[in-house]
Each structure stands twice: as structure tokens, then as C-alpha cells.
């Protein structure tokens, strides 16, 4: 119940942030703009719209999750609003989880809005052939950002927003290069030290590259073998990463002096 109250409040606070809406509106406008591209063939146009649309949604989603995530706890501590709240019958983990769920709810609402416009535009451009398939792409973007949000939450418990921004961005970049780190870890021409380094990087960071499924969605010829299995495994991985990161956040937060 308390977690819900905090989450609702965090969601309400986030919705009042104009900058988030500016991002969303600009993204929607850009998606609409891509529909007007006419210098390509019909098939190329659809590829460009799908590609740009998903890319924009992923980028803006990342900006939103970074903006919300890096400030989640640190701002509460900095602004001292946390004192009044934690002096009420609110457990520290309830507060932390409430903040996280509120931020993720904001992300879901923003992603949903952008996705709906995106699908509508592509459907219209594709002679009203419903392109619900694209929602799989935005769904995977959400799960990728769920992990990024949990990383930001963890750092938010004990760092300043600026430090958090760089740390979370670093994790995002390394995680997005998971295919690369994996291939470098197994490359034969690497030294043992480099191999260990790449292996640690690969396994110590979430493999965010797995959530980028733009290619099969954009290019109808590219296929994922056992699509359902791929989605299920990666979603479970996202949920596990999120759970682990939140548990660590709670443990750190519980020990922290305010």
C-alpha cells in the first residue's frame, strides 16, 4: 500500500516534468516526419520509417530513464524530502521500490504513447496493413530500459546525479556491446589478460545488445530462430537483472545514514 502511494506520487511528479513531454512530443513529430520521406522506393520507405521510429523511441526512452533514474533517490536526499517521508510509517525498501515503480510506470506511459503513434504511422504508410509486430520491438526496448533504470536506481542510492549519469551510461554502453565483448572474449588472437577482461565485462554487465531486435523487425527477411524462446529468455533475464539490482539497492539503502 505504502509502495503504491509512493509510486503514484513519483508518477504524478514525473508527469509534471515538462522536459519529458517535450521529448515525447518531439519524438512523435519526428516519427510523423519520417512518413513524409518520398525519395525512396515504397519498400525502402517502410524500412527507413521502422528503423528511425524504433531508434528514436529507444533513444528517447533511454533519455527518459536516465533523467528519472539518476535523480530518483539522490534528489530526495538532497532536497531533504526523504526525512519527512521516512519519519512516517514507511519502510526504506517500500520507499525505494515505490520510487522505482513510479519511474517505470512513467516510462511505460511514455513508451506506449510513442509506440502507438509509431505503429499508427507505419500502418497508415503500409496501406492500413496493421504492423503490431513492431510492438515487440518497443516491448524489448522497455525491458532493456528496465535494466538501465535499475542500474540508475542502484547508483542513485549512493552517488550524486552527475556521477550516476556517467556510471549508468557506461554500463549501458558496455551492455549494448555485449555481442562485441563476447566475441572479443573468445577471439583467438587476444592475450589472456584481454580475454579475462572482456569475459568479466561481458558477464558483469547486463547483455543489453540482446534487446535490440530492430533488424528482424525492419528487414522482413531476417528471422530469429525460435522467436518466442528468444523473447521469453531475454525477458526473464531482464526481470532477474532488475530483481538483483533492486535487492542490492535495498541492502545499500537500508544501511545508509540519511
Amino acid at each position: 500500500m505504502t509502495t503504491f502511494v509512493i509510486a503514484r506520487n513519483t508518477f504524478g511528479e514525473a508527469l509534471r516534468k515538462r522536459i519529458l513531454w517535450i521529448f515525447v512530443i518531439m519524438t512523435i513529430a519526428l516519427i510523423a516526419l519520417t512518413v513524409s520521406f518520398s525519395q525512396f522506393t515504397f519498400r525502402e520507405q517502410l524500412i527507413v520509417i521502422r528503423s528511425l521510429g524504433l531508434g528514436l523511441i529507444a533513444m528517447v526512452g533511454l533519455l527518459i530513464v536516465l533523467m528519472l533514474g539518476i535523480n530518483l533517490m539522490s534528489v530526495e536526499i538532497e532536497r531533504r524530502t526523504i526525512y519527512t517521508i521516512l519519519s512516517k510509517p514507511v519502510r526504506r525498501h517500500e520507499f525505494l521500490l515505490g520510487k522505482f515503480f513510479g519511474a517505470m510506470l512513467t516510462l511505460i506511459v511514455n513508451l506506449s504513447l510513442m509506440s502507438l503513434v509509431f505503429v499508427a504511422m507505419v500502418t497508415w504508410k503500409n496501406n492500413w496493413h496493421l504492423e503490431l509486430n513492431l510492438l515487440k520491438g518497443t516491448m524489448m526496448i522497455f525491458f532493456e530500459l528496465l535494466i538501465v533504470g535499475s542500474v540508475a536506481m542502484l547508483f542513485s542510492v549512493f552517488t550524486t546525479p552527475v556521477v550516476n549519469f556517467f556510471l549508468t551510461s557506461a554500463v549501458f554502453i558496455v551492455g549494448s556491446l555485449s555481442d562485441y565483448t563476447q566475441s572479443m572474449a573468445s577471439a583467438e588472437n587476444q592475450s589472456i589478460g584481454a580475454k579475462i577482461c572482456y569475459t568479466v565485462l561481458h558477464w558483469a554487465t547486463p547483455q543489453l545488445g540482446n534487446y535490440n531486435i530492430q533488424n528482424p523487425l525492419i528487414h522482413p527477411n531476417a528471422v530469429i530462430t525460435s522467436e518466442l524462446r528468444y523473447y521469453v529468455i531475454n525477458i526473464i533475464q531482464a526481470l532477474m537483472w532488475t530483481a538483483i539490482l533492486l535487492i542490492i539497492s535495498v541492502l545499500v539503502f537500508e544501511k545508509r545514514d540519511m
Binding site: N9, E13, R16, R80, P89
Partner: peptide, 24 residues
């Protein structure tokens, strides 16, 4: 708290409602 800080986007009535809800 000394120099209390609240969510300044809320109204006086809203902040009291929020804190009241935390008490259930």
C-alpha cells in the same frame, strides 16, 4: 524537520493528503 522541504509542485491540500495516505 528544520526548514521543511516538500514536493513544491503539490498544493497544500495535496501534500497533506499524500502524507495522510502514508499513515494509511
Amino acid at each position: 524537520p528544520e526548514t521543511p522541504y516538500f514536493y513544491d509542485y503539490m498544493t497544500g491540500a495535496e501534500i497533506l493528503r499524500f502524507y495522510g495516505r502514508l499513515f494509511g
